[in-house]
């Protein structure tokens, strides 16, 4: 263990700001990547749903037309 107390750990021998800044930015960038991935997934779901609905509407319409005929 390189540090004797928690405060010392957060101070990082006086370089706390820089060390935690880099780790924070890294974590934020990686989380943004994860979040963006989830967004894409959600959008894909929506797009697929829209497409399915459209196909259902189309099928219904065709059925109606056939019944009318």
């Amino acid at each position: 263990m390189a540090f004797s107390s928690v405060t010392e750990f957060f101070a990082m021998g006086g370089y706390g700001f820089y060390v935690w800044l880099s780790y924070g930015v890294t974590a934020a960038a990686l989380l943004a990547l994860v979040w963006h991935g989830r967004m894409v997934r959600k959008q894909l779901h929506q797009a697929a749903q829209q497409q399915a609905q459209r196909q259902q509407r189309l099928a219904r319409r065709q059925q109606q037309q056939q019944e009318n005929r």
């Binding site: 390189a2 750990f9 990082m12 021998g13 006086g14 370089y15 060390v19």
Partner: peptide
Amino acid sequence: LVFAPPDYQQGDS
């Protein structure tokens, strides 16, 4: 972050 020793020149940075 926790267990590695600090560098003799650069400290914890």
